[in-house]
Design a protein around this nucleic acid. Sequence first.
DNA 1: ATGAAAGCGCTAACAA
DNA 2: TTGTTAGCGCTTTCAT
Lengths: 356, 356
Amino acid sequence: MDPNPIQDMATMKDVAEIAKVSVSTVSRVINNTLPVDAATRERVEIAIRIVDFHPNLVARGLRSKSGNLIGLVVPELQHESFTAFIKYTEESVEEHGFNLIIGNTNSDPDKEERFIRNLIRRHVDGVIFSRVSDESRIFRIIEESGVPFVVIDRSMEREDIPTVVMDNYRAGEIAATHLLEKGHREFACITGPMNIAIVRERFSGFRDTIVSGGGNLADENVAEGDFKFESGVKCAQRFARHQPKFTALWAQNDLMAIGAMNVFSNAGIGIPQQLSVVGLDNTTSSRMVVPALTTIAQPFQAMCKSAVEMILHIRAKETVTEWRVTHAPELIVRETTARRDSGRIDGSGSGTVQQL
Amino acid sequence: MDPNPIQDMATMKDVAEIAKVSVSTVSRVINNTLPVDAATRERVEIAIRIVDFHPNLVARGLRSKSGNLIGLVVPELQHESFTAFIKYTEESVEEHGFNLIIGNTNSDPDKEERFIRNLIRRHVDGVIFSRVSDESRIFRIIEESGVPFVVIDRSMEREDIPTVVMDNYRAGEIAATHLLEKGHREFACITGPMNIAIVRERFSGFRDTIVSGGGNLADENVAEGDFKFESGVKCAQRFARHQPKFTALWAQNDLMAIGAMNVFSNAGIGIPQQLSVVGLDNTTSSRMVVPALTTIAQPFQAMCKSAVEMILHIRAKETVTEWRVTHAPELIVRETTARRDSGRIDGSGSGTVQQL
DNA sequence: ATGAAAGCGCTAACAA
DNA sequence: TTGTTAGCGCTTTCAT
């Protein structure tokens, strides 16, 4: 019947006419912003149902300067951790009645800036950064705009920037403690890029715990990777060339751990009989490799929840008591760690590294 | 100096005052909507730079009924394919100057509806579904709203719904052909849930090609999984109980393929010496398992690009010539497939299944 | 080629 | 308790 069945959803005006009230009254019942007579409210609510009214978020955003939107900036989407950020941030944002707008910057500074500017022009209520390449530029822009923001999964030098991170030092501690308890004394570590603060923190926790636990982490048993699978392979190959004496290895993420496992397995070194391996991240792959990887799960859900809540606090101008929220990681024991007595790598055994 | 360094970005009014023109002229130079005198345009552009003006997207959205936004609905965020959708959709959307707002519905019909309604209330320019649980409800809502939408990665019964999918039949064909060429004749298949159309298409392509290629796909060598790792394990265990005779297995995704690989490896069946395995998806894990999984890559990037372009076409009321766009998958040969002559599983060999 | 003015749908200050 | 009014910042007729 209708020649153009499309578009035009009901507006407050429609509701007001039906309910015989003014639009402001409608606004009041919707937002519970001022008391409304019970009978009037009733009429309005009926009218709302009649026309199937849903407030126009754009109009509201224009007026109230809040788009009920939160932005999430991720530098890439390869690593599962960033997917986890999306998942849990969206979850948390949704619970608060907001929507999530995401931008994958591919670590391109121009795309970073473009995206941030867009967010600001959209009246976002806050933005969560999981990493940006050009920090000073981005922070300047967003600070000028007055839009609340928090950094997730990075340690900032500036202490006045709200941050939520995993307790990275603790992660190192957990890995070391678990291995120490299994009787290991000679350790190795494949780290992430050492120019990243959280990588150094992870490493400190690992080394400090080993040392105070009577273990040993020789310099030549520490290799710096880049969090990618291939770098785990490379680092392990480097270790293997030197007839390694360690019986326990921690890689600072699962991808590198699995890369290393592959190298050692191919070289005939039994995992976990001769070498125990611990990862970090609890990725999908970590469950599926053989043997299944013992790893440390990052508290992504808690971190994202905190990040969203911080945004909302700052937005409400409530006093922020903590500018740096920390959540504890959790050990997931699977099959790649065993007691040291069950075997070891040393120059005399048959399990030493062959031509790699 | 400024007591409140916060907020208030420049508006068109500011620009207009500086350039000594009216706001309409400013609007015209920004949008190239009507001819503007060169000198005037120059003054306006300078003014824009002076105050660092960026148009307010909310205001524009209210007026022009287009928020320069595209919505993406995903049912979950565990499987890498959905991450791929986010990644490539965001990429494509960005290229067109739009932003992406994402909703993870966890297959909850209420959340689906809530999210869709929000999108509509935000004047999104289009929405892309990768799957919804309550299709008829969601489609009714969105069709009423007149917002353009396309379905990605699903075959719809209704032929008037714009859809972009991988050529799933072709994927089955590719798997079978590759295996046939390696000399295999006895096949097995672990499928996804058979109530999904694309799963049946994949299966048809696989079976048809095998049959016409002189191979054999016995009923007892077909098992229905649910795309999860564990179901790959279970299906493989079921096969293993019957002293399987096949030498080639296709699992309809990598997770199930890897689950199956683990079972057969543990049972002492050499991959690929005795059993060739092909997956589908080209996940991160597929590169990292040992041996590295031969698989089929879905054309996610092309699919997302098409989806966004279809949205834009529909929005521009340009005639949609194709309501169903299809992209071809691609074989990625790695280490889990070998010539059949190199070994086989049969009742007489030593590689048969032991107590599983 | 340019300006004045109306209005998108909503919120909020001000009256009544 | 309710209505009137004035915008939010932009696009877009309609004049000029």
